[in-house]
Design a protein around this nucleic acid. Structure first.
Lengths: 232, 232
DNA sequence: GTGAGTATGTGTCCAAGGTACACGAAGTGG
DNA sequence: CCACTTCGTGTACCTTGGACACATACTCAC
């Protein structure tokens, strides 16, 4: 390793933020404002400052470009092909982020319907898109998303990271629906519940969710911090 | 993302190269030549050129600093704390590498005894060290090694990456010895062999290895390319 | 050459976990 | 009050992983 001097690549971060809404997995995209890819969709991200860590840069860009704070953040992979960005040599550290509400600016409360663009001007070009129907992406971001999805699917099966994608209280049906949406396959309801219960990850709440049919008991995660647990 | 201009971090690679010899896991270290850490031990690595990929940079540095080519290479994690290098802001992409012979320069054939320093002048400061007895490391390389070991242990249990650490032909005892050395626990010989056989990863050879006792049949990997296989 | 010593090589039994699978209960809505 | 839909639970089977014992083949010491 060494000091400074000489030509060097630029360092950037790109973040794949996921959330679940309407039983479908969504990804946050922004519209490129200038340059060769102007108008196309891309992952939020940007240059890393001299005095901030990579994680900090990722959080800063998320807040700046989409008004999103309070996410689970995990480094994914670093993409550094010489020609991945036509504007110059950019080495990009990719992140996976998870959030429970489509936390777009303004209505952080109002449970923004993913799929719609954000109301605020500053983030007018940020939007949640169903992962199953993504537009073409700028740069090599399609490869980034592919890797992010693989990581997300893998980690859901052996960690409790699911708590980052659901609100405080949820029904077992909603939890299962989330797993099915992300893993892309159906799960046996009885086996799923048996497994979840045996792991003791959840805590039943007093309330129930009332719908068109039999009410479902609400649950919450015992501990909302990352743990290694074999779920599926 | 964007173009050039403004102050930016330097990009470097650091590589944790592992090999197995004398039934123990070894790591390749180099002695720092200048700067604040002069004389201390560190992982081989260096700046990333403007026109090379990250993987290429890792291979180039390995060849230059230790005369090592022909390794399995896998990106590990990117370390980017602002103060991890006292000489300036360096974002370092860490790699894990695996090689079967302590392939130090010159005697690529002669199966260099790990633990000894290299014979060639140019690589005089490169040496294999037992992972169980590592010296203090420069920079944040101790954290890098810790992460590399975790990755190595994890991957050995669900991939066939072991083929990168063994010569073409080996006995089942040697294979098991390698697993035990890396995982740090003993395995039941009968269950281990049963599992390995049932996976069909190996191909028995005609020859046997003769030692002080009953000869052991030599085996080779069916396919020497990365595969996902649940081994342990 | 012969017997002790040691590493190689194989099969069984049991426990645990995963998968397939069916029925009653609690509500809503017509 | 009847039909419908979702919630909620338990059993049987099979596969897998882990504990475990004995015969074989060769070397070395005597």
């Amino acid at each position: 390793m060494g000091g400074a001097g000489g030509p060097a690549p630029t360092v950037a971060v790109d973040v794949a933020v996921f959330t679940v809404a309407s039983g479908a997995l969504h990804l946050l995209l922004v519209q490129v404002q200038r340059g060769a890819f102007r108008g196309e969709w891309a992952l939020p991200g940007g240059r890393v400052g001299l005095d901030e860590s990579l994680d900090d840069a990722a959080r800063r860009e998320l807040a700046a470009q989409a008004g999103i704070g309070d996410v689970y953040l995990e480094q994914l992979y670093t993409f550094g092909s010489p020609r991945r960005d036509p504007h110059g040599r950019v080495v990009s550290v990719a992140y996976v982020a998870l959030t429970s509400d489509g936390g777009l600016p303004g209505d952080t409360r109002g449970r923004t319907k993913p799929g719609a663009a954000s109301p605020r001007d500053k983030y007018a070009t940020a939007a949640w898109r169903r992962v199953s129907r993504l537009p073409p992406l700028a740069y090599d971001h399609q490869a980034v998303v592919k890797a992010a999805l693989a990581r997300l699917r893998a980690k859901l099966t052996y960690t409790n990271l699911a708590y980052n994608l659901l609100p405080r209280a949820f029904t077992l049906g909603e939890l299962q629906e989330m797993y099915e949406a992300i893993l892309g396959r159906r799960l046996d309801r009885r086996n799923f519940r048996k497994k979840i219960h045996s792991l003791g990850l959840l805590r039943p709440l007093a309330e129930v969710r009332r719908g068109s049919h039999r009410p479902a008991r609400l649950h919450a995660f015992q501990r909302r911090r990352p743990m290694i647990v074999e779920i599926l």
